[in-house]
Measured scan of single mutants.
Amino acid sequence: TETYTFDSEDQAEEFAQRAQKKGYTVEKRKENGKFKVRVE
């Protein structure tokens, strides 16, 4: 499980979609103005 942090929602969304296409489970959340994407 890895967590990635992005400054913009667009970046987080793009990353999450790519990860989902590769078959990963993706969980997105906003925390302290940053966008976190957890991938497993």
Rank of each mutant, 00 (worst) to 15 (best):
V37C: 02
D10C: 08
D7A: 07
Y4G: 01
T1C: 14
A16R: 05
G23I: 01
T1Y: 14
Q17L: 12
K21G: 09
A16Y: 09
N32A: 08
Y4A: 03
V37F: 01
E14T: 07
E31Y: 05
K21S: 12
Q20S: 10
E31P: 01
E13M: 07
D7C: 14
D7I: 06
T3K: 03
Q20W: 08
Q20I: 14
F35T: 03
Q17G: 06
T3A: 05
Q20P: 01
K34W: 07
T1D: 10
Y24G: 04
Y24N: 04
K30D: 05
D10R: 09
T1P: 12
F6A: 00
E31W: 06
A16V: 08
E40M: 15
E27G: 05
E2D: 11
T5A: 06
T25L: 12
S8T: 14
D10L: 09
S8A: 07
E31V: 09
Y4N: 02
Q17E: 11
V39E: 00
T5L: 08
E40T: 15
F15R: 01
T25E: 08
G23Y: 03
Y24I: 05
R38H: 08
N32Q: 08
E13V: 06
V26I: 08
K21V: 07
E27I: 13
E40G: 12
K30N: 11
V37L: 03
G33K: 03
Y24R: 05
K21F: 08
S8C: 10
F35I: 07
E27S: 13
S8N: 12
R18A: 13
K28V: 15
R18V: 09
E9G: 04
K28N: 05
T1E: 09
V26N: 01
E13N: 13
K36E: 10
Y24P: 01
R38I: 15
G23A: 02
E14H: 08
T5P: 02
F15T: 01
K36L: 15
F15W: 04
K34D: 03
F35V: 05
V26F: 04
E27D: 09
Y24S: 04
T25D: 07
G33Y: 03
F35M: 03
K34T: 07
V37A: 01
A19F: 12
N32C: 11
E13R: 06
A19Y: 13
R38F: 13
K30F: 15
K36N: 07
E9H: 06
A12T: 01
K34H: 07
K21W: 07
K22G: 10
V37M: 02
F15S: 01
D7Y: 06
D10N: 07
E40D: 11
K28M: 15
N32M: 06
T25N: 11
K28R: 11
F35N: 01
R18T: 09
Y24E: 03
T5I: 12
K28C: 15
S8H: 09
K21I: 08
Y24T: 03
K28W: 11
E27A: 08
Y4H: 06
A19K: 07
N32Y: 05
T3E: 14
E27P: 01
R18G: 06
D10E: 14
F35G: 00
Y4D: 00
V37R: 00
R38V: 14
E2T: 14
D10A: 12
K21L: 13
V26Y: 04
K36V: 15
A16C: 11
E31C: 09
G33E: 05
D10V: 10
A16P: 00
K28E: 04
V26A: 06
V37T: 01
S8P: 00
R29A: 11
S8L: 08
R38C: 10
Q11F: 05
E2H: 15
E40I: 15
Y24V: 04
E9F: 08
Y24C: 12
R29H: 12
Q17V: 11
F15P: 00
K21P: 00
E2W: 15
Q20H: 08
K36D: 04
K22Y: 14
T3I: 12
T25W: 12
K34L: 10
D7G: 05
F15A: 02
K22V: 07
Y4V: 04
A19T: 05
Q11G: 05
E40C: 14
E2S: 14
T25Y: 12
E31Q: 06
K22F: 13
K28L: 15
G33I: 02
K28S: 09
T3P: 04
K30A: 11
E13K: 05
T1G: 14
F15I: 01
Q11V: 09
K36A: 10
E14I: 09
T5N: 04
E27K: 08
E27V: 13
Q17D: 09
K21H: 08
S8G: 05
K22M: 15
K28Y: 13
V26M: 02
E2M: 15
F35L: 03
R29W: 15
R29Q: 10
V39S: 01
K36Y: 15
T25F: 12
A16T: 05
F6T: 00
V37S: 00
E40H: 14
E2L: 14
D10F: 09
N32W: 04
E31M: 05
K36P: 01
A19G: 02
Y24A: 06
E14Y: 08
Q11D: 13
E14F: 08
Y4M: 04
D7P: 04
G23N: 03
G23P: 01
Q17T: 11
T1A: 13
Q11A: 13
T5V: 12
K22T: 06
T1L: 10
S8V: 06
S8Y: 10
E9I: 06
K22D: 13
K34I: 10
R29F: 15
Q11H: 07
G23M: 02
E40W: 15
R38K: 11
